[in-house]
Amino acid sequence: MKILRNTIPVSDVYNLMKSGELTINRSYQRGKGLWPNNARSYFIDTILNDFPFPKVVLRQVVDLKTKKSKREIIDGQQRLTTIRDFIENKFKLTSVSKKYAGMSYEDLPEEVSAALLSYEISIDNIVTATTEEILEIFRRINSYTLPLNTSEKRHATFQGKFKWFISNLTEYVTPFFENYKTLSLREISRMMDADLITECCQLCIDGVQNRGASKLDNIYKENDESFDLEEEIYEKVISSFNFIKDNLTEVFDSCKVPSYIFYSLMGALIYNKYGLPDAKNDFQDLEPSGSFANEVNQVRDELIRMFSEAEEKDEDGKYLNFVKASIATTHSYKNRLMRIQTIVSVLQN
């Protein structure tokens, strides 16, 4: 068995598929049609923005009847058929492509379509290999990756409105998480940022909840085909986050703000400005003020003190209840509510 590693432009791959010189071997490929339009659009958008994607694996064989060489796709069927279908104007890009939404291949500016055709695809071309060796390669390709966690499974399962809404929000917010170590790079790579943003949206939909994978799955499921609250939730989440970014970065510079405290801060800001569903019994005397904070400088100082006490597990400080709610079972409803209530009281002075 010999493997030739090189790159091939999209134009060459397309012409190989069109001529029948590059085919799909159904013996070790999954059925076609697995990618919905949003996923196909996101993949084409990846190429249009010159981002890399995983290499494609081909097998080169000789047809004894025609005495011609041809190639079979071992790994990369969905990627290559999506490229072919787009070039043949079989689908238009959805809103997940920010620059080219609504465009088919023929609608692209000339320089963009030229760049698409010249994009280099990384290829492993396997020659002189037996069918047994090819099947072993395919098995190994599918065994290298880590098992999907619940976040990754959720984003692989749902391809509708809410999934791409969260994808756009994470693109905007995640650099902040990375910069201030709210989430580690490993956590971000395993889509914990998407989980955190989803839970912030959940606050607007269902109010304060204990963490539960099934609850998040339901939000994706219920808003997969249509998402009527999209504009409202976008406004609440983004404006609350922007308030943090514009006014409270000193808090993040001064002390560690882990994801469960970020969730609590977002919950408090959303509640104080907009209110939360079914929150009357939860907050009682703490009515929403209609603004994010009354005295920003004072709020900033108090949050630094509160979060520092939590980081140091200081049970002799001013914010004992907040500290206790930050030590264990940080994602329980009781402790989440306690932290949010305490931050709201600071926002309202």
Rank of each mutant, 00 (worst) to 15 (best):
N6L: 08
D12H: 09
V13E: 00
N15V: 14
L16C: 04
M17I: 15
S19F: 11
Y28Q: 05
G33M: 15
P36S: 01
A39W: 02
S41A: 14
Y42G: 05
F51L: 14
V57I: 15
V57N: 04
D63F: 10
D63T: 12
T66L: 07
Q77N: 04
R79V: 03
R79P: 01
T82G: 05
T82K: 04
F86G: 01
F86P: 02
L93H: 03
Y100N: 11
G102C: 06
E106N: 15
E111D: 06
S113D: 07
S113L: 09
L116I: 08
N125R: 12
T130M: 08
E132H: 07
I137P: 01
I141D: 00
N142M: 10
S143G: 07
Y144K: 15
R154C: 07
A156K: 05
K161V: 02
I166K: 02
I166T: 02
S167D: 12
E171G: 13
V173Y: 01
T174S: 14
F176E: 02
E178F: 05
Y180Q: 08
R186V: 10
R190M: 09
T198Q: 03
E199I: 14
L203T: 02
I205T: 12
G207M: 08
R211P: 00
L216Y: 02
L216V: 12
D217E: 09
N218Y: 11
E232L: 12
K236D: 01
N242T: 08
I244L: 11
V251Q: 03
V251N: 01
K256L: 10
K256V: 12
F262G: 01
S264W: 03
L269C: 08
D278T: 15
D278F: 15
A279Y: 06
Q284P: 00
P288Y: 07
P288H: 11
P288M: 11
S291H: 06
R300W: 03
E302D: 00
L303I: 09
I304H: 07
A310Y: 03
E312H: 10
K313H: 14
D314Q: 13
D316P: 01
G317A: 10
K324E: 08
I327K: 13
T329F: 13
Y333S: 10
N335I: 09
L337E: 01
L337F: 10
V344W: 02
V344G: 04
S345G: 06
L347K: 08
